[in-house]
């Protein structure tokens, strides 16, 4: 975005203004996330900066909301539920989605467009509609208010992400590598484990991460089909925001922001690894 040497004065001014606008938008994007981090260390039960916080007085800061969080059986139970449901649905979605992606990337897949559209649909249909539909149907077959019901629902929601990422990885997969492996004397099993799998793994893992975060962050479906037994972390936050708004929520929010940073880094590393393995130039 360097300014060309022939730029007029007006253009230079516009360029500066443009950069100013961009800075403001970036601030709008990230600012809110940065505001809540210091707020979560507030010693007072308020959602705003106290006098002491602004003057950087240590008395204005405390870890009480984090302590609240880590000693509350409700929150810990909710985290446990979130992990149980998240991990189970991720495993299911990843296995089903990866196997399906292998079929979808075959050259001879019939009706690919229609099947793909159907596999993606849980991502397109608004969550409230999926939630209502699953509530009606799962109550009929006695799956509402069970762990299995929530896991199946979250698997369905996570599947599109796995299918999209894995098919994308497979589409850039160089099939001559398989022939090369065969010609060098590897049998199909050996080829799959030694050649195909290492190349596809980064795609599968990032698909799994997408599926996990989808389940981990999902409120609406759980709100409708889960019972009190299956209370997850987002549900706990949701009722926290609606009923008794306490800065514990901000502590949880801060932890979740850190989690998403971790996730983002992992995904970026996976992407780079995948590209390096496939010999695609970084970009």
């Amino acid at each position: 975005m360097a300014i060309p040497s022939y730029a007029t004065r007006g253009e230079r001014i516009w360029h500066t203004v443009f950069l100013g606008i961009c800075t403001l938008v970036f601030l709008f994007l990230v600012g809110p996330l940065l505001v809540i981090i210091p707020l979560s260390f507030n010693a007072e039960p308020y959602f705003t900066f106290s006098e002491e916080m602004l003057t950087l007085d240590p008395a204005g800061y405390s870890l009480r909301w984090y302590q609240d969080f880590f000693t509350s059986s409700e929150w810990l139970g909710a985290i446990k539920n979130s992990f149980i449901i998240g991990i189970a649905s991720t495993l299911l979605a990843t296995v089903l989605g990866t196997v399906a992606a292998l079929g979808l990337s075959s050259r001879h897949m019939p009706a690919r467009g229609a099947i793909m559209a159907m596999l993606i649909s849980p991502m397109i249909v608004p969550l409230i509609i999926s939630a209502a539909a699953m509530f009606f149907f799962f109550s009929k077959i006695n799956l509402a208010q069970t762990y299995l019901g929530v896991i199946l629902a979250h698997t369905a929601l996570g599947i599109p992400f796995v299918v999209i990422t894995v098919t994308a990885t497979l589409s850039s997969f160089d099939t001559t590598l398989i022939r090369a492996a065969h010609s060098l004397g590897a049998n199909p099993t050996r080829t799959f484990f030694k050649v195909v799998l290492p190349l596809v793994t980064p795609g599968v893992v990032s698909g799994a991460l997408f599926a996990f975060i989808t389940s981990f962050d999902e409120v609406v479906v759980v709100l409708f089909i889960a019972g009190p037994e299956q209370r997850t972390m987002p549900i706990q936050m949701w009722s926290g925001i609606r009923e008794q708004i306490s800065p514990t929520i901000l502590a949880v929010a801060t932890l979740l922001v850190l989690l998403s940073m971790l996730l983002l880094t992992t995904l970026e590393l996976l992407r780079r690894r995948g590209e390096r393995l496939r010999g695609v130039s970084p970009g």
Partner: peptide, 28 residues
């Protein structure tokens, strides 16, 4: 044969989605 193989690979997921997602939508 390869068409059949591709369909076979996709079918578990299709079956799953029909039960967990498509049928609920039609039920609604």
């Amino acid at each position: 044969r390869s068409k059949l193989k591709a369909l076979l690979l996709v079918s578990p997921l299709l079956a799953f989605l029909v039960i967990a997602f498509v049928m609920p939508i039609f039920d609604m």
